[in-house]
Write a protein that binds this DNA or RNA. Sequence first.
DNA 1: CTCCATATGGAACGAACGGTACAGTCTAAA
DNA 2: TTTAGACTGTACCGTTCGTTCCATATGGAG
Lengths: 190, 190
Amino acid sequence: MPRQVAERADILPKLAEIFRKRGYEGASLSEIGAATGLGKGSLYHFFPGGKPEMAESVLAEVDAWFEGNIFAPLRAIPAGDAAEARARLAEMCRAVDAYFKSGRRVCLLGAFALADTRERHAARVRDYFRRWVEAVARALVVAGRAPADARTEAFDAVACIQGALVLARAADNPPAFAGALARLQARLTA
Amino acid sequence: MPRQVAERADILPKLAEIFRKRGYEGASLSEIGAATGLGKGSLYHFFPGGKPEMAESVLAEVDAWFEGNIFAPLRAIPAGDAAEARARLAEMCRAVDAYFKSGRRVCLLGAFALADTRERHAARVRDYFRRWVEAVARALVVAGRAPADARTEAFDAVACIQGALVLARAADNPPAFAGALARLQARLTA
DNA sequence: CTCCATATGGAACGAACGGTACAGTCTAAA
DNA sequence: TTTAGACTGTACCGTTCGTTCCATATGGAG
């Protein structure tokens, strides 16, 4: 194999960062080139499908991270182990706080859910949030909630996270996100 | 005065609708022209500042609507009248549900808080959410909460609304928004 | 009717867009 | 040392962007 100066995997985080900062439509190829340090030739070498493929790849990577680090651990809680369920829900809050850098980072899928790219990535965004809510609901059932209550509480929990991100970003007040997460953790593990 | 076929006030709702649907960067002048039924000449006649002025005017109008219909009523609750405070908090939930068309409409300021236009409209977005949270907190204090609790609960309430909008939009499931609002109302008026 | 400010559509503009083409650079294997 | 092919920068393409400009239409005031 010839040289491999840049890796697709190295580019994706930088791509994610610029899509977060500028949005899909707002991120121009020249900006992307500047942010990644890659010329258009390299960009189109790694992403022959152009900007749509870049965005899709970024979403897939973010989705995979959440699937592995957030959703799967919640789903894998042994039935009946309420204490473990509470522990993993608390761990979710910690991991979410870390991922979003305590409110300094925006949820790309949340932003794409609201903005112009809704149509384009609707299926992936829908699936991401569905799996998140279902994983939390599963954990809450193990923790002792009635299934119906667990579902609404899980919805409200994920909504709380997303809303706190919006408000923390709007107020430019990252600590507010951490505070909201702490209260959420208390509610979930009550 | 010569004819006035179109009014600035008539255009703003249509502008808001297209910014909601396509985002700031995604909404092109030709789309805006098609959506409003106005040529570029008319558009630039009403908004000499171009697209930035259009967005700013829309945000100002939305902000004014919330100020008059949501924030002010909450702020104006007579001190000590806990029952009235609960009633107006319930009325806020009803008005919010109506405004967002039960989850079929997106919060423009929330979307702008996350997306590419963050820098441009940061001050207005920050002020909007700050006034919202403070108004709810004021009502909660009158309803009997301790000031510190009222502040965090108000933050969580507005976050819940914004997050529910994100999730309802992502899942393409408007009723989920109404459900979240109903639960929020129950919590606030408890 | 004549004015004239207001309102309007659309042609035209430069700039920037996303995307393509390709010659050139470099490295690992032969 | 040669060579195949992964990588890279850049010039360039057609398109569309936001904006400007202007000829024209309109309707109340004089």
